[in-house]
């Protein structure tokens, strides 16, 4: 599709949407959002980019195969669960650290956030792969 309006809009919306998906992912623990929604927004963002610029260019923009994203996501999720076992505790037990962080105050980070990142990547990867596959042939 060669719509100048869409292309310009996508050029500006795409990074904003990706940023928003990250915001959803990170704020998900305390406010509405989370890895699932975030991943879907990221996938929608790439879908928009694809409609404006075509599959090939989007693939280049993404740099990696979406299925690799999904695989990496699964791996991250499993590894985040294994981290808790060093404590030792059951698989997938959350481990939290509260570390002082400049400007922010106290950074409260834990393995569930890593797990959520895994969810984000799986949802994003699978959705994008399906969109690409349908668009391609």
């Amino acid at each position: 599709m060669n719509s100048l309006i869409l292309q310009i809009a996508a050029r500006y919306l795409h990074p904003l949407l990706l940023l928003y998906s990250w915001f959803l992912l990170l704020s998900g623990h305390n406010d509405p959002g989370g890895g699932f929604t975030g991943g879907l927004v990221a996938a929608a963002s790439f879908a928009l980019y694809m409609i404006a610029y075509g599959v090939e260019q989007t693939r280049r923009a993404l740099r990696v195969d979406p299925l690799q994203l999904a695989g990496a996501g699964l791996l991250i999720a499993v590894l985040s669960g294994l981290l808790g076992m060093f404590r030792p505790a059951a698989f997938l037990t959350g481990v939290w650290i509260a570390a002082p962080f400049p400007v922010w105050g106290v950074l409260d980070a834990g393995t569930p956030m890593l797990f959520d990142l895994g969810v984000y990547l799986v949802v994003m990867g699978v959705s994008i792969k399906l969109v690409f596959t349908f668009a391609e042939d």
């Binding site: 623990h29 959002g33 989370g34 997938l92 569930p112």
Partner: peptide
Amino acid sequence: AHGRNVVNVIIVDFRALDTLGEIT
């Protein structure tokens, strides 16, 4: 679970094993 969004805490912490199954 250090989170105020109960829905998300259930997904990524309390019921994380279910979620792991789902994303798989």
